[in-house]
Amino acid sequence: MPAGTLYRGREGMWSWVAHRVTGVLIFFFLFVHVLDTALVRVSPETYDETVAIYKTPVVNLMEYGLVAAVLFHALNGLRLVAVDFWSKGPRYQKQMLWTVMGIWGVLMIGAFYPILQHTLHSLSGS
């Protein structure tokens, strides 16, 4: 492991690790997403056939994972802005991380049914 990749292992380090990991995941999805959207220039059928993949249960679950990654990256990113630009930011970074995790948890619970309803309905056969 390259030098300097572990730093004390507290909230500050792990939120930094999670920010990197979610950022890379989102960036790779972005490539795929621009490519699949570009299929609207091929034909409506090609696009609809490809979007059908997004409606399968496994990929639908991955969309929930994508939303989890985006929400963490967004909320923790706002925390980073506060740490950098708010004079008391560094002092409250730990409390802000737990606030981020709290909001993230509430939003993930709220998003569970709306995002996965397609799969839940198809699995229950209605």
Binding site: V40, P44, Y47, D48, V51, Y54, K55, N60, E63, V67, V70, L71, A74, A111, P114, I115, L116, Q117, H118
Partner: peptide, 21 residues
């Protein structure tokens, strides 16, 4: 991005509605 996810994946039936139309 959160607006985009809300429209595409959360509101109005989630991913079901997405199509060329």
């Amino acid at each position: 991005v959160i607006g985009h996810l809300l429209i595409q994946l959360v509101l109005d039936g989630g991913v079901s509605k997405i199509s060329f139309a």
